[in-house]
C-alpha cells in the first residue's frame, strides 16, 4: 500500500489527464442513479449536444499548447449565427454559408495570431477585446433582438444519423482524428511542442515561433467557425445570447484533458474526454436538479482545481 503512494507512482498517476478519471466517475454515478440512460440513443443525443464544444476544444487545445488562449469564440459564434439566421444573405446556399463562416473564422484567427504572435499582446486581452467588439457589432446589427430562423437544411443535416450515431458526433470524431494525425505526423506538431515547452529554446533551435503561434490561432479560428455552424444548426434559430460560455468551457475541458499552458501530455484525446466529461456532467447536474448558477460554479471550480493540480505538479518537478 505504501508503495502505491511513493513519489514515482504519484508522478505516473498524475501524468494521466484528470479527464479520464472524471469521465469514469461520472459514468459510474450515472449508471447507479439513472441506468436506463446508458443506451446508445440517449447517449448519442447527449454527446451531440457537446459537439460544438468538442470542435472548439480542438482549437483551444492547440493555442493553449503554445502558451496562448482564445476567448473570442462567443463573438465569432454570434456573428456566424447572425449571417445564417438574419436576412443579411437572403437565399444563400449552404456552401456559401460554410465558406463565409470559414472566412470569418480565418480572419479572426489570423488577427488574434498576429496580435499575440507578432505584437506580443496578452492573448487574454486581445481575444476578450475581439469578443467584445464582435458581440457589440452583432447586437447592434440585430438591435438586441433575435434575428430570425435558420434555413432548414442545417437542422436536416444535424438530425441525420450514420450507423446509429448522430452525424455531428461523427464529424467531431473525424476532426479530432485529423487533428491528432496532423500533430503527430507533421513537423508542425513538433513545433507546437517545442514552443510550448520553451519558446526561447524553440527560437534558438530554428523554429519559426511567431508563425507557429499565428498558425495555431488561425486553426483555432477555423475550428470556431466549424463549431459555430454546428451550434447554429443545433438551435435552428437566430440568437444574440447563445454560446457565451463556450470558450471558457473549452478552456476547462482542455485543462481537464491534461493540456495545460505549454504542456501537451493529454494530446488530442485527453481534451476529447474532457468534453465527454462535460457532456455527462450536464446530464448528471440536470438529473440532480442543479441550475444554471450551480453549473457556473462547477465550471469555475473545475478550472481552478485542474489548474491547481497542474500548478502543484510543475512546482514539485521544478524543485
Amino acid at each position: 500500500m505504501a508503495a502505491l503512494f511513493n513519489r514515482t507512482n504519484f508522478n505516473r498517476i498524475s501524468r494521466i489527464p484528470p479527464a479520464y478519471f472524471v469521465f469514469a466517475v461520472l459514468l459510474i454515478v450515472l449508471w447507479i442513479a439513472r441506468p436506463h440512460m446508458l443506451n446508445i440513443n440517449i447517449m448519442g443525443i447527449f454527446i451531440r449536444q457537446v459537439v460544438p464544444l468538442g470542435i472548439l476544444v480542438l482549437g483551444q487545445m492547440l493555442v493553449i499548447r503554445v502558451n496562448s488562449i482564445d476567448l473570442s469564440g462567443a463573438g465569432v459564434l454570434l456573428l456566424i449565427n447572425f449571417y445564417i439566421s438574419s436576412s443579411m444573405f437572403p437565399g444563400a446556399s449552404l456552401p456559401f454559408f460554410v465558406a463565409i463562416s470559414l472566412a470569418t473564422g480565418l480572419a479572426v484567427g489570423l488577427f488574434n495570431g498576429y496580435m499575440v504572435g507578432k505584437r506580443r499582446v496578452s492573448a487574454v486581452i486581445v481575444t476578450l477585446a475581439v469578443n467584445i467588439v464582435l458581440v457589440g457589432i452583432v447586437q447592434f446589427l440585430a438591435s438586441g433582438k433575435p434575428p430570425g430562423d435558420v434555413p432548414s437544411i442545417f437542422s436536416d443535416i444535424y438530425n441525420t444519423k450514420l450507423w446509429l450515431i448522430p452525424t455531428p458526433v461523427l464529424f467531431w470524431v473525424a476532426l479530432a482524428l485529423i487533428m491528432s494525425l496532423f500533430l503527430s505526423r507533421f513537423v508542425y506538431g513538433r513545433y507546437v511542442s517545442s514552443v510550448g515547452a520553451n519558446p526561447v529554446a524553440a527560437l534558438f533551435s530554428g523554429v519559426p515561433v511567431e508563425r507557429t503561434v499565428i498558425v495555431a490561432h488561425t486553426i483555432a479560428g477555423l475550428m470556431t467557425a466549424l463549431a459555430s455552424l454546428v451550434q447554429t444548426a443545433s438551435i435552428a434559430v437566430g440568437s444574440v445570447r447563445v454560446g457565451h460560455e463556450l470558450p471558457i468551457l473549452a478552456v476547462a475541458a482542455t485543462i481537464l484533458g491534461g493540456v495545460v499552458f505549454g504542456r501537451g501530455e493529454g494530446g488530442v484525446w485527453g481534451p476529447f474526454f474532457g468534453v465527454l466529461s462535460f457532456a455527462l456532467l450536464f446530464v448528471v447536474m440536470t438529473t440532480f436538479g442543479i441550475g444554471e448558477s450551480g453549473k457556473l460554479i462547477t465550471q469555475g471550480l473545475i478550472i481552478l482545481l485542474a489548474a491547481i493540480f497542474y500548478g502543484l505538479r510543475t512546482a514539485k518537478s521544478r524543485t
Binding site: 496562448s68 496578452s122 492573448a123 477585446a129 467584445i132 458581440v135
Partner: peptide, 22 residues
Amino acid sequence: TAIKGVILLLVVGLQSRKKMGL
C-alpha cells in the same frame, strides 16, 4: 461596447513586452 473593445486593443497593442502568449 464594440468601440471600447477597439480602444482596449489599440492601447494594449501599443505596449511592448517580451513575453508571448497569455
